[in-house]
Design a protein around this nucleic acid. Structure first.
Lengths: 277, 277
DNA sequence: ATTGACCTTATATCTGGTATAACCTATATA
DNA sequence: TATATAGGTTATACCAGATATAAGGTCAAT
């Protein structure tokens, strides 16, 4: 009769000895003999069948605890339920990973865009695609306050996102809206902040869409310069004989690890949709 | 100037206080002030920007260590590399999860098949699809030995699988082949064991394919009865005027948690491809 | 007897928090 | 002023599923 020591059992089954000891302690796979004098673990080669089972169930992602329970009571229906649950869990994990992957790729692109972005102060006409955003109205005109109030409003936006179970993966491409009439009257009054979202989301009152079109854009590397640069943008609109045809957007392009330890390190694209007169 | 206590900071950012303390200890996000007398942590609302960043990077699956390194040195190129690595890692994880999901579903089906399997001794003609298997030749005729030798040979098969980096997910649907000429001569001589594999794998010498076709099958609930049942199968072949047209397969249908603590609890489908005379 | 391979147990490590205990502080109310 | 209660502090243990290490006992051969 073959009695395998823990080392031999480990070797023929491609497991570590530690793992076998762990399984013993957990009651998953106990050696069929134990040395009387030396306390050695001795396995029967046929116990490999149980180890196969353990490894097989484990490779499907079941926990040792679940495996233990299943191997203890040989209940057929129960394991099917367990596997069905596991299948759903995998489905969720897959969806999460796919979202994550998209976010990673979007972030890489965003970095590349940041690296090759026009310099501060440059004015450009760009064609931008249709965009969807998740927008909240804070009722507070943040132009009256400093960056601290802006952060506060962003917290409110973040809370709102989380309450609606939206991934924080969206919370990276934020901005604010200044309505057309206020912009044209040179009134810096805005209470709305948003994040751009990509997926087609279930309809919510917070969702807004802005159309594709030509946007006159000015790039800006600091929050403090925004008003000044927005006025420059307006001058450029009239100088080049365009007509403002929608709301002004202040978009944070990269608030990525270009972040100072104290405060947001911003790179903004101020933009206004224009039509040709 | 707003100074937020750890509780306030936690609340506005949807983090637990414990987590903020952890981030402080790890040097990821340290409060901008520390109470002189009471040692309290006081945060600046603008530090939310850094917390946003941490949460954003974390939700893409980066480790706190990586995040710390990235936020410490503001190196743009480096984080792109990190993200590209992450993207590849996600890709691998996705593939692994998909394989796992398939295995889970296959196992559920296998259970259902087991639950509704014909009783021991029943003979049926079944049409089976083309199957691929990973087969090794042990050079040892396991019919000369007991179940212990069979387990040993399965260990060899398992080693071989693992050396070729094949998932243990395959190691569940094993079997053995008895070549046609040996079967017909009533010689139980076989040295070949295999696992069925599903995916189209890179070509390896171990891979064999058996064609789709009609198989006369007999179901058997014990390893010991195999030879006897195989002879019954042969009798049925001649009685029903079929002709054996390929190798005999002994397939382990369910070696699932129907496993005894000591030894493999088997349910076998013995099968032989037949043509009509 | 000694070597080297192998076995034993107990404990620490990893990740990203969560939970608990034991204790200190701030603020409002009785 | 006492105290309730809410909130802060630290240190420690826990989760899973191993892996790694240390300190020591055993086996077989030289």
């Amino acid at each position: 009769m073959d009695r395998l020591t823990i080392g031999q059992m480990a070797k023929v089954n491609h497991v570590s000895e530690q793992t076998l000891r762990l399984y013993d302690k957990q009651g998953l796979l106990c050696p069929s003999f134990r040395g009387d004098t030396n306390g050695y673990r001795y396995y029967d080669i046929r116990q490999s069948a149980r180890l196969d089972m353990i490894q097989y169930l484990k490779s499907m992602g079941l926990s040792l605890k679940d495996i233990q329970r299943q191997l203890a009571r040989e209940n057929l229906g129960e394991i099917v339920t367990l596997l069905e649950n596991r299948s759903e869990a995998i489905q969720l994990q897959l969806a999460a990973l796919q979202t994550q992957k998209k976010a990673v790729e979007r972030t890489i692109r965003s970095f590349e865009r940041y690296a090759s972005a026009p310099p501060d102060g440059r004015i450009l006409l760009e064609h931008l695609e249709k965009r969807q955003m998740y927008c909240i109205d804070s009722k507070i005109n943040f132009y009256d306050y400093g960056i601290e109030m802006y952060e506060k409003l962003l917290r409110e936006l973040k809370n709102n996102l989380m309450e609606n179970d939206l991934s924080l993966l969206y919370f990276c491409n934020v901005g604010s809206i200044l309505r057309k009439e206020n912009l044209l009257a040179n009134r810096f009054v805005s209470t709305e902040v948003f994040v751009f979202v990509e997926e087609p989301l279930a309809s919510m009152p917070q969702l807004q869409t802005i159309p594709s079109g030509n946007y006159l854009c000015i790039y800006c590397d600091s929050f403090e310069k925004e008003k000044d640069y927005a006025r420059r943008l307006l001058s450029a609109v009239s100088a080049q004989n365009y007509q403002v045809c929608g709301d002004y957007i202040c978009e944070v392009i990269a608030d990525l690890p270009v972040v100072e330890s104290t405060s947001r390190g911003m790179f903004l694209r101020l933009q206004v949709p224009v039509s040709f007169r």
